[in-house]
Design a binder for these strands. Structure first.
Length: 283
DNA sequence: AAGAGGGGCAACCGCTCCTCT
DNA sequence: GAGAGGAGCGGTTGCCCCTCT
């Protein structure tokens, strides 16, 4: 299936973006919104590839971007999510408001990856000490232990999700499936796609929509437990809650043999394992 | 003071998936 | 159903800056 290159490479600006280019792109997107990246450079008068524009906007120019100063909580969350999801940077970034996949990927490669690796080497020698009393010495050590066991990473199915599934019977939504954005207190059974709360940005809406499509693929046997993590809202669930919970190891044999008949109940059970009872009640 | 080496990070590349016709 | 285009993702590259010698 041949296809034309996304842009003519000859004559295109490459490399670092200038302040002027940033300004042009920002103003164009403010005026016309995101999307149609392929035509954007031409329409905006930028001598850049559309993909380059998209990347620049998503990673640096968006107004809600947080840069640098990754907090210890965020760091621990990244480790946990990486343990669960592997190198699914976009999913991990989606759980950290204001953070981009590129930033997290870089942060992992330059900081966390090394830390985890170092700890893995040290840990193998000191595991016995750590667990002598039944528990690791510290929360941090526990975190590193989990992250180090990267062989247990669950690979979610890569999917671009644009379809929205709205459950006609929201009260029947099983625990662990759509409850992430089914807030009983504020949205009595209604998904929040149209009534956008003031505190909710477009990105959140997009993520919510994205996750909704996962609910549409319950027959997909590959859709393992980790998919249920794709859209819990970090604004609703504090980092502390998440960090205080434990992610048990996942039995991949189990995941591979979930039948379509019991996939839902399994997912509910497994989701419950991932999060503390308190967190589930909070949802 | 200057060159070498390494680390961090922004940007690019290629692949994959989804949608549309 | 097949092909083409649009968009997103993860891996990799290359530049810049800082530190070390």
């Amino acid at each position: 299936m041949g296809r034309s290159p996304c842009c003519a490479k000859e004559g295109m600006n490459r490399g670092a973006w200038t302040a002027h280019e940033d300004k042009v792109l920002t103003e164009y997107i403010k005026l016309h919104g995101e999307g149609r990246w392929r035509n954007l450079p031409k329409n905006a008068g930028l001598n850049r590839c559309g993909k380059s524009c998209r990347l620049r906007w998503l990673n640096y120019l968006r107004p809600d971007i947080k840069r640098g100063n990754i907090s210890p909580d965020e760091e621990e969350l990244i480790i946990r999510l990486h343990k669960l999801l592997g190198n699914r940077w976009s999913l991990i970034a989606g759980r950290l408001p204001g953070r981009t996949d590129n930033e997290i990927k870089n942060y992992w490669n330059t900081n966390l990856g090394k830390k985890v690796h170092d700890h893995q080497q040290q840990g193998s020698a000191s595991d016995l000490k750590h667990h002598k009393n039944g528990e690791p010495n510290s929360k941090k050590a526990k975190m590193m232990d989990m992250a180090a066991a990267s062989s247990h990473v669950v690979r979610t199915k890569a999917a671009k999700c644009t379809k929205v599934f709205i459950n006609p019977h929201p009260h029947k939504i099983p625990l662990g499936h759509n409850h992430q954005h089914y807030n009983e207190e504020t949205n009595a059974g209604g998904l929040m796609f149209d009534d956008k709360p003031a505190a909710m940005d477009d990105d959140h809406i997009n993520r919510t929509r994205s996750f909704s499509s996962f609910s549409n693929i319950n027959a997909d046997q590959e859709n393992s437990t980790s998919d249920f993590l794709v859209d819990f809202d970090m604004d609703e669930i504090s980092l502390a809650n998440l960090l205080n919970s434990d992610f048990p190891e996942i039995n991949h044999d189990d995941l591979n043999h979930i039948s379509s008949d019991n996939v839902m109940s399994r997912c509910v059970d497994e989701t419950a394992q991932f999060f503390s009872e308190g967190m589930l009640q909070h949802w």
